[in-house]
Design a protein around this nucleic acid. Structure first.
Lengths: 206, 206
DNA sequence: CTACTATGTGAATAACCATTCAGTTTATGA
DNA sequence: TCATAAACTGAATGGTTATTCACATAGTAG
């Protein structure tokens, strides 16, 4: 009936389910294309093929719809990454798969990537929660790797932000096609893993 | 008289200069506190202590003010980093100083950091331009280091996004006080440099 | 078939807000 | 001092938009 504590009324009948899904789908696309503030309830309902009032049968406000999308999608992206990382055995492979999974997901569904970052300008608390919980999960994985002696003894919380930063910016490069080089995912992940393996500097430099 | 091609009318008298500066200052603070869309022209002029109409003596629109701030501030942050990086001799030191300069700048003036990221939701073209030009400069510096044999042979464009990602996310951690560990800049930069020096994995792992 | 509930409608409401403009004040320099 | 331009004012305008509501329809259980 209710989703989380957001006061969203989930539909009970088959047709209403379709309407609900259409509203979600349209909102996701439009928030991506025109941003949260650039999207009106009328835009959303029109794209979903329903009247404006229908929106309020399911969502109490525009902001709650946004939060709902943010929660749903962050769960989705985390699940996807967790599955792929879980299938790998070494930490090296886990790191590689994690980065690849994130970039591929962001490329397939750039809306999600966008919505998460935009939270900084809609509700700072949501943004903070999202990255702190992502970091905490990352740290757990890294702790296990350190127990196994697979990674060096570095501060894991800082490390998690470093790795999230790498992944996010490299994904950004891919989905917005930034820079002049080709944005082939396999090639880019190779560069990242090379850096993580051997570091940036030559022997000569140190 | 005019700033860039933005059609901003710069003031000619001393008092008008003060007014102009107050508007800029108020806007910067309010865009940071409440975001671009959460800030009205009335908020800005009120905070600056002038009437609403005064705003339009100098800026043709709210969006142009935003672009003006973005341009001015990105020049400022780049200049600051360039100065500190230029003073270092080895690439290791340049990298260290660059990361530190960025984080310290972001901590001192978090508004700037915020404004740059928000461009993604105000004008995607501006965002793209900002990061592509930042990347291009970074690549130039890295090219020189590679000529000198100071860094390994990695794709420099990808590398620039990796390094920007690290710096941005670590700065984010500091200015939003994310995570549970202390956010001492010196300590964090040490972790980053350690990773860049020796890589993430132990010998055992490879 | 009937009553009931869920679903849907879209025009109306009430706020909000960027921008304009007709008029006023202030500074300047001759 | 006076004329002129620059700076400033703030109420009015016009457009936008989240949300509401009185009404309509469709599905369903009895």
């Amino acid at each position: 009936m209710k989703l989380g504590n957001l006061n969203i009324k989930e539909p009970t009948t088959r047709n209403a389910r379709i309407t609900f899904d259409e509203i979600e789908k349209a909102a996701l696309r439009l928030f991506y294309e025109n941003g949260y503030h650039g999207t009106t309830i009328n835009d959303i309902t029109q794209a979903a093929g329903v009247a404006a009032g229908t929106f309020y049968l399911y969502f109490p406000s525009k902001k709650v719809l946004y939060q709902h999308l943010l929660f749903t999608l962050s769960k989705d992206i985390r699940r996807e990454i967790a599955t792929r990382v879980g299938a790998a055995t070494t930490r090296y492979q886990k790191e590689r798969e994690g980065i690849k999974a994130f970039i591929e997901y962001a490329e397939r569904r750039p809306e999600i990537y966008n919505i998460i970052w935009e939270s900084l300008y809609i509700d700072r608390k949501l943004f903070k929660e999202y990255y702190e919980s992502f970091s905490a999960r990352y740290v757990n994985g890294l702790k296990e790797a350190r127990r196994q002696g697979e990674i060096r003894d570095l501060d894991l919380e800082v490390l998690s932000f470093v790795l999230m930063g790498i992944t996010n910016f490299v994904a950004l490069k891919v989905i917005m096609d930034l820079g002049e080089g080709d944005n082939d995912i396999e090639r880019i992940v190779d560069v990242v893993m090379d850096l993580l393996s051997t570091g940036l500097f030559t022997k000569k430099a140190s």
